[in-house]
Design a binder for these strands. Structure first.
Lengths: 337, 337
DNA sequence: TTGAAAGCGATACCAC
DNA sequence: GTGGTATCGCTTTCAA
């Protein structure tokens, strides 16, 4: 038995037409119980499975979704792969991975389109409006995950997106820190121009201003663990130090806490409050008590899939789904003495 | 412009035959500079890209590699996805993700085969000998990643694999702990019957025995973060406590350290040595000083790809590659006071 | 080098 | 409900 059997061979063995074989494997097709049984029997003997390539060539649906990511150091993203893949699998779809540099996503899109994917999810990457148009023309929906389309470009090729309520999350952090009576609240930014960072920062700033105060100090961590450590050190130079910091995402917040605790000898949250954002597994915050604005991966993934299906229909407007975020206090073990 | 142009349309525009178009996109085919230029020009105008499905239907190579994983909580695995995907991409291959339960991998294989993948990488899952034979018949090579084939089954359908030198790693840990003068060395196991765990434990035990001592205590963490915390608590009950523990992988080692430091108030490595295994990003061990037997994801992935290519040839014997492992002392920040 | 034509393995539309 | 046939977009002989 070489490369698995064809429908032709199954048909011959079952003494039916090839069409009958095809129908037997099509849920809800018009086949008698009798023929279907014969076909299935023959199929089992030959180890037959329909060839997905041949099928998608004619149906024009590959049941493949491309997932573009740049780097997986941030534990938020592996969760996305897992959940997205899992849920799509249950619907008969599968995820084709593409790793791209943060900016070079355009080259990757060209590759993706060769695979006739039914949709594209872009997490931690953006793409040029030109390419977006390309995909739109090809009828391939794109969903930006945790990012919002670049509005500075022509809005007409704007793509769909799923984000959490970053602005409101930023506000919540400010309100929490204010209520705790903090005086010198720092902000540790991610990439300054990313939509996610901008919104979180804006919410934070506005709420502070409304309360008659301001961000005490600011540094940039570029969403990198190493650079976030450096940024934390910068925030804590001089005599007057922050008594709280809002870090643009959990990944950097953990880097921050490592520096605060180990290098600066500060206790969290006694000496300094740290608030993060996103949703990372327990293994990441581990021994820390981390307050964080949780944007549930679960909910975001569900929204993404919903959006993909919706946008597969032709002539629908791109749409942005905003999932609610929520302030949560986490601790997996009794915080260190 | 609907779903991207076809070779037919490009041919018409370039005033050449469809075959010419095909050849122009086939590296090293017999085409004149002249025609290729015309074709490329026309292709650019129409935004043409060869349809990968149609191509693989006839070439019988999809340039897709299936990657099967069960859960991504262990940060070792996201690294695998990233590296594998990245390197394959450079060779014109892509990764199709499959999430499976730890045991249920068989169902997944059936799905995989429909996609006519050129190879399968199974990480954190195993498969039945029957399915292995199925794939072998279909000419699809399987590489077990970080696992060794189940030798209890008929060896003739044994699959290829990539592992690190787990046995030697286990020995190295024992030697290190002995040289540090430890007296009561505990072992925190993963899944007791996984090949990885067995080998690491065997190396550890044998080296201890040769030195005239024995494992002081043992508990099982099932490769789970939460259960590893529980197992750690079990190890430290009673008056006589371990003064060192070898944890079967880094993921659990971190859970362990969280408990040791936060709940039990022990300092690492002053009060207790902790040694892990695998290779996880800095964000995971963060503020800890972790001694670990590193099995380089990079090297393992390179070996995996090598093996995939080799096994794509018909009639080659399955082969196991063992990549060297290495004892490393890690600390990203000055350890906590 | 080039074009015509024969498939690759399936689905879909058609009469029956 | 069933079988024949065109077709999906491409690669690959085979003549020219």
């Amino acid at each position: 038995m070489k490369s698995s059997a064809t429908a032709q061979e199954v048909a011959r063995l079952a003494k039916v037409s090839q069409s009958a074989v095809s129908r037997s494997f099509t849920p809800g097709a018009s086949v008698s119980e009798d023929t279907r049984a014969k076909v299935m029997a023959a199929a089992k003997v030959l180890g037959y499975r329909p060839n997905a390539m041949a099928r998608s060539l004619i149906t024009r649906r590959s049941r493949i979704i491309a997932l573009v990511m740049s780097y997986l150091e941030n534990q938020f993203y592996p969760l996305v792969i897992e959940k997205l893949s899992q849920k799509l699998q249950k619907q008969g779809y599968h995820v084709l991975m593409f790793i791209s540099d943060l900016d070079e996503a355009d080259d990757v899109i060209a590759e993706i389109l060769q695979y006739q994917v039914d949709g594209i999810v872009m997490a931690s990457t953006t793409l040029s409006p030109a390419l977006a148009k390309n995909c739109q023309d090809a009828g391939v929906p794109i969903v930006l995950f945790n990012r919002v389309p670049d509005m500075s470009a022509q809005a007409r090729y704007s793509t769909s997106s799923v984000t959490s309520d970053n602005y409101r999350g930023g506000r919540m952090v400010a309100e929490l820190l204010l209520s705790r009576g903090h005086q010198r609240m720092a902000f540790l930014a991610g990439l300054e121009n990313s939509s996610t960072n901008l919104e979180r920062e804006r919410g934070f700033n506005e709420a502070l201003q409304e309360a008659g105060t301001n961000v005490f100090r600011k540094a940039i961590g570029y969403y990198s663990f190493e650079r976030a450590k450096q940024a934390t050190r910068e925030l804590f130079v001089g005599a007057e130090q922050p008594d709280a910091i809002f870090v643009a995402n959990d990944h950097m917040a953990i880097a921050s806490m490592d520096v605060l605790r180990c290098e600066l000898g500060l206790r969290i949250p006694d000496d300094v409050s740290v608030v993060g954002f996103d949703d990372v597994p327990q293994a990441a915050w581990g021994a820390y008590q981390l307050t964080t604005v949780v944007q549930s991966v679960e909910n975001m993934v569900v929204a993404t899939i919903e959006l993909l299906h919706e946008q597969m229909q032709r002539d629908v407007q791109p749409r942005n789904i905003v999932v609610p975020s929520q302030l949560v206090e986490r601790a997996s073990v009794r915080p260190a003495p």
